[in-house]
Nucleic acid binder design. Structure first.
Lengths: 255, 255
DNA sequence: CGCCGCCACTTGTCATAACAAGTAGTAACA
DNA sequence: TGTTACTACTTGTTATGACAAGTGGCGGCG
């Protein structure tokens, strides 16, 4: 019954927080801490492994970056569900194709405003015209060059929580699924091409009238409730390549 | 001449480290700290803005995550070059298409070994057979499911530095370009299909004989020196889609 | 001249401590 | 009964301090 003896070795070549991180990762994967369950508090973990809270936070922070756990201020630390969002991936794929190895991808938060929903937004989110919605504007930078402007409309309660989350480095869907405890279901998309207006010229650093690809995306929860209505504007000249999606052939083909 | 008055406001609704992060980001972008230059040390920044080193490190850590700066242990903190790696992106693109919004992508470090180069590795890296090379094995997990095994061979000096870097959360090309100060040039690739052997079955959690797509990639520095020879093994069933790359057409096309 | 060791400086790790802020349950009060 | 206020818990932020470890320069010694 020596389970309480700390397996963490001080002064080892591996930092304490790394040892703790791997230990906790193993415990999460082997079911010691099941999905959705609350983990011990930071202080408890510190007592248990005889390390300071700073060390615990460093380990937990890394695990959160990996998506294995998530935290809620004032409540605790929880194990994330292994499931992830499946549906829009292939559509987003065509936008993200440039964001590959070696490219830095940064999200820049332009604004978060609470406005009255116009007819179209209200209809999509199943609200009444004039109801308050949160409008989040973000610019995605690849190689420090703006490539897309993303304008999202979400119900005000969701908007407030998103506002407090880390919209710059964390993925918006991860935040919705984990921190907000909502399961995402499907998304409807429409794609067309437009010309850059004044807002787009400023945000994307293109000339007025430049070709812009617009993606309209309405994301639903697993229960079918629309939760996130967005417009994604991509610079046309950021797409040097177009992809055609073919159903899988056997294998072996050269370029 | 009030430039030395700290613009950071304690007790503001925005945390100090966030204010500092944005301030430094602005200074980097406006050229106060040019690319490649060394920034003030953490202690100096702390003195300058009257905050503790922990706060400075939190701000710098976030900026490093964004790829704006990089640190070298014992030397200092440096501004990253805006430039990024261009060439292999489209090739990698076909592998990463699943790793889109809402999918958690984790790199798991299996092993780092220093071994004697066999004939093929030696030839590719322009070494002599039997010379020591570093072998790095990583598994890429998407949605907590293993999808690819990546085996990289690099010269031993590079390998040692990579070993000390954060291979789990940071991109290997970013580390090579920034921390190691090497400019990447082009990459040669070959793609074929193989059957899973015992190592692959274990690493990728597939059955023996399952179809595996293999990508052989030799990455060169800007000066043409081969620096990274890798085998990327992707689960065949992880590729529901195949892409064909076409040169850009004007715009506007439907799916 | 070349090598080695010391020293100053840097980032990395870790402890202790305090208070802010969010959450939730409970007790007191109207 | 309902609402408010308090309290105990959590994570978030920040300070101070210390030592480890990596880098590079400088000086001394062979």
């Amino acid at each position: 019954m020596n389970k309480n003896i700390s397996p963490l070795i001080p002064f080892a070549p591996v930092p304490l927080y790394n040892q703790l991180k791997e230990l906790l990762r193993a415990q999460i994967l082997d079911g010691t801490y099941p999905a959705e369950s609350r983990m011990p508090s930071e202080s408890e973990l510190g007592d248990q492994f005889q390390v300071s809270r700073i060390t615990v936070r460093q380990a937990l922070g890394d695990l959160q970056k990996e998506g294995l756990i998530f935290k809620i201020h004032g409540k605790g630390t929880f194990v994330a569900k292994p499931k992830a969002f499946q549906n829009v991936s292939t559509l987003q794929g065509l936008a993200e194709s440039l964001a590959q190895l070696g490219h830095e991808v940064i999200n820049q938060l332009l604004s978060v405003n609470f406005i009255a929903a116009d007819a179209r937004i209200a209809e999509r989110l199943q609200l009444n015209e004039g109801d308050k919605v949160a409008e989040i504007k973000r610019v995605r930078l690849i190689n420090r060059e703006p490539v897309s402007l993303e304008i999202s409309y979400v119900p005000p309660d969701i908007g407030e929580k998103l506002q407090k989350a880390d919209l710059i480095t964390r993925d918006i869907f991860l935040i919705i699924e984990n921190d907000l405890q909502l399961n995402l279901g499907h998304a409807d998309l429409a794609i067309d091409a437009v010309l850059a207006d004044s807002e787009l010229t400023k945000a994307l650093n293109v000339e007025e009238g430049a070709p812009i690809m617009r993606i309209e995306r309405l994301t639903h929860t697993a229960t079918g409730k629309p939760i996130d209505f967005e417009f994604l504007y991509y610079r046309g000249d950021a797409f040097q390549y177009r992809f055609r999606i073919d159903r899988q052939r056997a294998s072996s083909q050269k370029f």
